[in-house]
């Protein structure tokens, strides 16, 4: 594990990468997303784990994205993810619709190193009808007619997320957001922004260890104070709802989005690096 500057962390995401991102309420790596846009990354294949929020909307609006696999794209109470919706309408974005537990389950299969995993439900949904990579098989453990969905393992190239802190071993602490652990375990490697570095070893602390993702999975870390903003971080700071609401209004138009990008992303490297 190495500790890098934010822009150097962003440089580790190659064009075309299959990149897993958490939504706004789950330690979203907003500062890294902004750095990726500044680095002018292209053709990303994003996975919303299990949904997509403001970060995905920014990347789509900035032209960085080829496809998005997700169960939803939404800004929560602020409503539709405007650039995502516009790209769907314009047909410029490949959307691979899923359903939340299917994404969790496909990541769990990758985490275990098995080729697929079953999931109940979903049969009869048009989500399944549009997923040629998903299959329905007969439950091999019963003689009854029992069709069940099986999902192929989903192994992202990179998992990117924000964490409260990292130690010198590359262990990062995400508290109860264990879906990030599944995402990190399933991906080839993880890039993590943190509020701060801490001394010692987080895994040596019995109270902290249950919220740790082991440095085994972490390729590099960058310090980005308030790096989830405008998302929130556990009990450290709340989401900036006013900002997200304002974004939802402004980004309804191309021009409004461009103005937002200029103000908060393209000219914001100093504030993100702080």
């Amino acid at each position: 594990m190495t500790v890098l500057a934010l822009d150097a962390l962003a440089a580790l995401v190659p064009d075309g990468a299959l990149l897993a991102l958490p939504p706004d309420d789950s330690l979203t790596p907003s500062a890294l997303v902004r750095a990726l846009i500044r680095r002018n990354v292209r053709q990303l294949r994003l996975v919303g784990v299990p949904t997509a929020g403001l970060g995905v909307d920014l990347l789509v609006g900035a032209g960085c994205v080829a496809s998005v696999e997700t169960s939803a794209a939404s800004l929560g109470e602020a409503g539709t993810a405007p650039r995502f919706a516009a790209a769907v309408k314009a047909g410029t974005l490949r959307v691979i619709d899923a359903t939340c537990p299917a994404i969790h389950t496909a990541l769990q299969a990758a985490e275990k190193g098995v080729p697929f995993m079953p999931l109940r439900g979903v049969l009869g949904s048009d989500v399944l009808a549009h997923r040629p990579d998903w299959h329905v098989m007969a439950n091999p453990f019963t003689v009854d007619d029992d069709p069940i969905l099986v999902l192929p393992a989903l192994q992202p190239d990179i998992a990117a997320f924000h964490a409260v802190c990292a130690d010198e071993e590359g262990n990062v602490w995400v508290g109860r957001r264990r879906e990030l652990a599944t995402m990190a375990h399933a991906s080839r490697f993880s890039l993590v922004t943190v509020e701060r570095m801490v001394s010692g070893n987080l895994l040596a602390d019995e109270r902290m260890a249950p919220g740790v993702i082991s440095g085994v999975y972490v390729e590099a870390v960058a310090v980005a104070r308030r790096g989830a903003w405008p998302g929130g971080v556990l009990d450290e700071y709340p989401a900036d709802r006013a900002h997200i609401m304002a974004y939802a209004r402004e980004a309804r138009t191309e021009a409004g989005f461009a103005a937002y990008l200029a103000r908060h992303v393209l000219n914001a490297s100093a504030q993100d690096a702080a």
């Binding site: 939404s74 899923a98 359903t99 989500v127 399944l128």
Partner: peptide, 9 residues
Amino acid sequence: PGSFGSAFM
């Protein structure tokens, strides 16, 4: 927005 967990739940 998308199907969220509905197809399962």
